[in-house]
């Protein structure tokens, strides 16, 4: 998605242009919905998160600044934080299906067509982050992926990959530190 195009749509949205907002929705809702769906593993709640996120985007479009990153990243953060909030407050989680994602022992998902359990990550872009994350240890990468894509807490990652809490925290912390070093080189 072209950032200049999204920026012009967001600017018009900030001025109350509903047509621009609708175009912005058409351009980004599929990606944002997929992110929320992957985290929540629940179509109704993912739609709720998407709805809340776009209402927030409508109201806060004028708060966007270039220093906050590209437009899509700013929008992704809004839908991710809303999804984390739903996870935190409603405690809706399909633990068994999460285990299935990694063990790949059960393909009888309720929503097979969604294909939301797959954590076999293949990046579409060639950002520096992708290079850097490929350099992490496999455990560090796995723990960071589970937290980012599934919205898992430290304790949930522990349950998922069956390693001690201290080890998981250390993987994530060291993985992030290594990412930071790599990204600032």
């Amino acid at each position: 998605m072209d950032n200049d195009h999204l920026l012009s749509l967001l600017s018009a949205t900030a001025q109350g242009n509903k047509k621009a907002f609708a175009t912005l929705y058409e351009a980004t809702s599929g990606k944002l919905f997929a992110i929320s769906l992957k985290m929540l593993n629940n179509r109704a709640q993912a739609e709720e998160a998407l709805q809340d996120a776009f209402v927030k985007i409508w109201h806060n479009a004028s708060d966007y600044q270039v220093s906050k990153g590209v437009v899509l990243s700013w929008m992704i953060s809004i839908v991710r934080y809303r999804s984390l909030d739903i996870i935190r407050h409603n405690k809706v989680r399909k633990e068994q299906s999460l285990i299935d994602d990694y063990d790949a022992v059960d393909s009888s998902s309720e929503d097979e067509d969604l294909n939301i359990g797959e954590l076999d990550v293949s990046y579409e872009d060639d950002s520096k982050l992708v290079d850097c994350i490929e350099q992490l240890d496999q455990q560090q990468r796995q723990a960071i992926h589970l937290a980012y894509y599934k919205g898992l807490t430290h304790h949930e990652v522990v349950d998922h990959i069956r390693s001690p809490l201290g080890t998981v925290k250390s993987w994530i912390r060291r993985g992030l530190q290594q990412l930071q070093r790599c990204l600032t080189l």
Partner: peptide
């Protein structure tokens, strides 16, 4: 960190939400 980590989302393929989501958003606005 948002700029960095949200690049991870590039690996997620878009999924079209139901039409009613947009209708609800429009209604709320």
């Amino acid at each position: 960190w948002e700029q960095h980590l949200n690049n991870l989302a590039s690996s997620i393929e878009a999924v079209a939400p139901d039409q009613q989501v947009w209708e609800k958003i429009s209604q709320r606005i």
